[in-house]
Design a protein around this nucleic acid. Sequence first.
DNA 1: ATGCCTTTGTGAACGCGTGCACAAAGATGA
DNA 2: TCATCTTTGTGCACGCGTTCACAAAGGCAT
Lengths: 265, 265
Amino acid sequence: MATDRTHRPATSTRSRGIPEATVARLPVYLRALTALSERSVPTVSSEELASAAGVNSAKLRKDFSYLGSYGTRGVGYDVEYLVYQISRELGLTQDWPVVIVGIGNLGAALANYGGFASRGFRVAALIDADPAMAGRPVAGIPVQHTDALEKIISDNGVSIGVIATPAGSAQQVCDRLVQAGVTSILNFAPTVLSVPEGVDVRKVDLSIELQILAFHEQRKAGEDILPEGVIPDDETEPPVAPPADTVTKRPDPGSDGDRPAVMPA
Amino acid sequence: MATDRTHRPATSTRSRGIPEATVARLPVYLRALTALSERSVPTVSSEELASAAGVNSAKLRKDFSYLGSYGTRGVGYDVEYLVYQISRELGLTQDWPVVIVGIGNLGAALANYGGFASRGFRVAALIDADPAMAGRPVAGIPVQHTDALEKIISDNGVSIGVIATPAGSAQQVCDRLVQAGVTSILNFAPTVLSVPEGVDVRKVDLSIELQILAFHEQRKAGEDILPEGVIPDDETEPPVAPPADTVTKRPDPGSDGDRPAVMPA
DNA sequence: ATGCCTTTGTGAACGCGTGCACAAAGATGA
DNA sequence: TCATCTTTGTGCACGCGTTCACAAAGGCAT
Ligand SMILES: NC(=O)c1ccc[n+]([C@@H]2O[C@H](COP(=O)([O-])OP(=O)(O)OC[C@H]3O[C@@H](n4cnc5c(N)ncnc54)[C@H](O)[C@@H]3O)[C@@H](O)[C@H]2O)c1
Ligand SMILES: NC(=O)c1ccc[n+]([C@@H]2O[C@H](COP(=O)([O-])OP(=O)(O)OC[C@H]3O[C@@H](n4cnc5c(N)ncnc54)[C@H](O)[C@@H]3O)[C@@H](O)[C@H]2O)c1
């Protein structure tokens, strides 16, 4: 998963009784169900659907139980009916205008993404700070300048924004989006966005995903070489030099009023 | 979070003692630490770093405790040293050749992504099935035809592959990658990939992210209308038409194998 | 009707992840 | 050397999420 709910530990967790983990799986079920629907399959068992969605059947049944009892024992679930129920639960029965800010390589790719409009999401506008891009159509939609951001959000009643600007501009763009009324943000920039309570932020970070894969990859390689648990589990320091001379202990306990240590927020 | 570890419940979970949740946060810490390092900040307290990374300080300290005791009580953590330790733990001290398959809108954007090479990841090759793209340089790297996939993987010792092909081709491409020796896959196609044990798959799914945001967005809207907690916490059916007339309870307990209810998307 | 067979819905147990709160460690200054 | 102050490292408790296992429900055939 490239995303990761930013904050709201207790709040969103109990979102109306449906566990967050379940909410995250509903789209997956929906996709599988839609495929079945297109093949005119009338019903599916939890086992079959779970297999298609790549999850445990008990988990799937429990997930559905949060929505209500929509299955028929001995038979399974009605595909069409379930598609509707999940769509409704996810809020997909209504139209969600979305704005994409930062129409560079990624932003343009997102704008061209077909799966975007396929489920109730509509690209209401493409916004970029580069004056040279203003008016230029991308994916059939003319790019508008950042100056119009607030008006666009307001006029279209946009509540979901996608940030695809460089990291340095992300927080600033985020602030403007939130100020203008956006309450859900999908962030592709490699930055931790800080938003006021009530605003949801999900992030997609390619770099993080690769690093997580690298971690496991390294483990696999390590295990191949060291099938035995040679040194128990403590190769922590041996490899490199622990804090000693490098930069760590700068010899000067005195005043040093210049470099104000860290002092972040 | 747009990604989501596909399977391996017990296996990867206890990866060498470091919890999966911690592994997923290490890249975030690393990014914050790198920024501090560039500003020549020598040390940080867990509180400051946690704030920059957007997490709880206790969580951060516990995360670091899995790597060893690298902090100094009363002072904090040595930035440079921690950058090194985390990099090593994530396997970033080595070079990871990566191949991107499917050089369309998204694949091209990924190829152009600078943050790619910044941390030990190197785009070893760009692969596409379209003969017309063969040889065409994208981000300075010539696109190669799918026919050469196996040889490319093998020659470069690639163990990480990125799939950016249409959903329909994803599983097939995945199979070839795995067959050729890739053991970690980052999948951007909206499909559930099935892979043999030992292969890691992480997925990035824009559509799912938006749907999750829509769910919460819908809740927010609903709460605005119903400020009071009228019915305690069980508005499961009241809000919307429960199985009754709409399409819900198709009035006919008998057969009726035809057109079920609504079917939105 | 009745019994069999399939599949749901969920109680209960378990494990992971989170966050509090604090003892211990170590730096700093007298 | 000793007291004080800061910040780490972690024991502990709690809640969410996962999975097992099974009773109950319902379809279907006889
Ligand atoms: N390209 C990828 O595959 C990829 C992958 C992961 C993450 N990202 C991240 O996504 C973001 C965009 O990547 P990219 O490759 O498209 O970069 P890019 O440089 O091609 O595009 C960035 C665009 O944002 C615009 N922009 C800059 N500041 C702005 C502002 N304040 N308001 C509005 N628009 C502004 C620029 O004019 C430009 O068009 C970056 O943060 C990058 O790290 C990209
Ligand atoms: N564009 C986005 O923003 C975006 C967002 C989320 C998900 N996705 C997904 O990413 C994938 C790619 O999206 P896109 O917009 O770049 O599509 P695209 O059609 O622009 O590009 C797909 C590319 O894959 C190549 N391809 C097809 N079959 C192949 C095969 N068997 N082997 C190698 N290459 C093959 C095609 O030649 C084409 O160049 C799709 O699955 C899409 O659903 C895209």
